[in-house]
Write a protein that binds this DNA or RNA. Sequence first.
DNA 1: CTGAAAGCGCTAACAA
DNA 2: TTGTTAGCGCTTTCAG
Lengths: 346, 346
Amino acid sequence: MRKTAAPARRVTIVDVARHANVSTTAVSKVLRNAYGASPEMQAKVRQAMADLGYRPHAAARGMRGQTYSIGVMLPTIRNPFFADVLDGITELLRDAGYQVLIGPGCNGQAEEARVTETMIDHSMDGLILVAPVSSRQHLDRVAGLVPTVTVGRHGRSASYDSVADDDITGARLVVDHLVELGHRRIAHIDHLENDPDRLAEMPNAVRADGYRQAMRAHRLDEYIDIASTSYTQEGGYLGAQQLLSRLHRPTAIFAGADIVAMGALQAIAEAGLAVPDDVAVAGYDNTMFAAFAPISLTSVDQGGRQMGRNSARLILERIADRTRPATHMKLTPTLAPRRTTVTPTP
Amino acid sequence: MRKTAAPARRVTIVDVARHANVSTTAVSKVLRNAYGASPEMQAKVRQAMADLGYRPHAAARGMRGQTYSIGVMLPTIRNPFFADVLDGITELLRDAGYQVLIGPGCNGQAEEARVTETMIDHSMDGLILVAPVSSRQHLDRVAGLVPTVTVGRHGRSASYDSVADDDITGARLVVDHLVELGHRRIAHIDHLENDPDRLAEMPNAVRADGYRQAMRAHRLDEYIDIASTSYTQEGGYLGAQQLLSRLHRPTAIFAGADIVAMGALQAIAEAGLAVPDDVAVAGYDNTMFAAFAPISLTSVDQGGRQMGRNSARLILERIADRTRPATHMKLTPTLAPRRTTVTPTP
DNA sequence: CTGAAAGCGCTAACAA
DNA sequence: TTGTTAGCGCTTTCAG
């Protein structure tokens, strides 16, 4: 009764064609909804596909045409903000009949190159790169090989589309809010950045710039104080420790991301200080954890889900028309004030 | 000067072969470190590959041989526990020269089937399925097509390997701990499960069983109380609300996962109750957020990273030998007691 | 509207 | 040890 250990040959278009008494070309056409297949033929072929449980082999399709799959690179899956972005992406692509595969967390250019190459090697039809740290040169090379969209990053390249948040405004929202509450010693925790490209294009760098601009606008130049660590929980912890050990410690800390604020809160708690009375804290991204009651973190909402949806739309457009000029979207953030800056009035 | 919009043809083994004055077979052999290539030939070919910036086309390789890539399916990227598992997986596979692609969050069997099919369609060499909810039938079918390892799930199939946590022991650790602290009304928040397969195999169901067993062992049968919602933050929130509205409300809540405990803490805070004095809380997974000071959640550590590493090792073994008998590993968890159950003695 | 045939980049038999 | 050849499953000319 049982087949031998032979790994169960796949159903191919040849099988479908035979079953439906048509040519493989016909099957291929139906599969792609291509022009040149009568309704009867369509019906016959679809029936045969259903009967045989046929599934197109993406790898094989990729050798000549499209694979109908999109690669998404996320910097890390530990930052819940990226989950929001991903939700937006999959929501839209799923409905469009595209499959989504994710490249795993990466730190630095080498890792990113590995991930992008892997996706190209798998003949993905398009790439969505979330907050990539690679050089413009690398991004342009990738975009030359496959339609590409960046999310979060600010550069306006001619070879790929982008969706970004207006981080200057986002930082200003936080500083304005804190100043209004009476703070002057407002410090910032940043993701350390040296590369000149990234200094101009990465969201963290732009946020730091926005912070500086806003402080100056309030004539608080002398209180500008940035701890450069990294956009991780540990980075926030170490950054806050630095800031708290200043001769005059800040009364408010603006962390560049919610996950950074998490670490900062940890350091503040360990130092025996109270939030927001001793030190107020604000984050960025308005993730689930910011809204989480025991934390209740003031944060900037950049609409991650919407950014994801937009990037998906852009990649589909670019796949449809590779020659259309690059589109660059910039979304306006809003502030969600919570308990880490505002003491609730009873 | 510039090339036309032609999408830059890829470097293939034909190019490499021509450049090195050898056959394509020779190049293929070098690429695979296969037997039958002299050192000089190896050197020549490798040089040519470097000169031309050659990269193997995974999709094409997949049509005849291996793609050297593994698909990892995660139930969701919102649960930080899965990040630990993923870290263990990538750490090991990267060193083994394998690429890793991740299937995006899925809820329910239909979504899981989509993801597994997608990975099979991309000719992945192996699949690591983390806490899959699919039927055994589906898993066996998948495992028949491609080497497969499950993580977290308990069933001992003959067709795929598995790595699981001893969830019975884990639940007992929590109950013992709470009983020792004087608790009797210990309630549990579970992930609702109806399917008989999953009732026996899913970690959540086994944890609930372990909870019941441990309560009975302490002669606390009458206090057994389970709120069945889901393993999400919202599930924890709703589950805790249910439990807190009981006529006699529990003095301790054992949440089936840290992320569930997060939601429970939110509900408790909103109810104006204190942790751990009014209600003690324990979670499962010992994620970063359990260790996070403002939360400081008592939790069971099942060693996610180690589970990931083990699953990666198993998949490599199975790729190397498809006929070897299935291996099933079970790891023993430990308890990490923290402030949500134990008031620090000053 | 339909189908035969060539070929995508690679690997696996087989021959030399 | 090396090279020749025939596909893998699909799409794409190009005839019918």
